[in-house]
Amino acid sequence: MTGASSGRDGSDLEALYQGIILDHNRRPKNYGELPAPVHHAAGRNPLCGDEVAVFVKTEGDTLAEVSFTGKGCAISRASASLMTGAVKGKSRAQVDALFDLFHDVVTGRKKAEDHKAELGSLVALGGVAKFPVRVKCASMAWHTLKKALETPAT
């Protein structure tokens, strides 16, 4: 079984690597560490060696600022970049709900086009659903964000 024989075609590849993904990969938003005190966690994909670190400044229950650093593929960088923008200003409960929806979309359980309003620019990652081996790349930053929020600010 290859990509070519898996029922995917060139348009799936274009959907995966659409302009917004490539742009966020080249020029990620909110890249860099935030000054202390912040919630902070590091994530690592042991299969590929890619890593991401997420920094969150909270004000009460709100994620006031979110940033990331790390090395990784276009999908993981673009996903981290888009995530930082998507969660900023949201409450923890809203972030949890958004992550659940995002996860359902990239794993193909829900269709991105049915949830455009909630997803906002995260819609761009809907193409991942056709590439199951890349789901981890897309969700690594989110898992790391969750871990950061469970960690006391230092």
Binding site: G3, A4, S5, C73, R134
Partner: peptide, 15 residues
């Protein structure tokens, strides 16, 4: 400019 994983995904599409 291309991470090896992205490269592998694109190559896979070409078999």
């Amino acid at each position: 400019e291309a991470h090896p994983h992205d490269l592998a995904t694109i190559l896979d599409q070409a078999g």
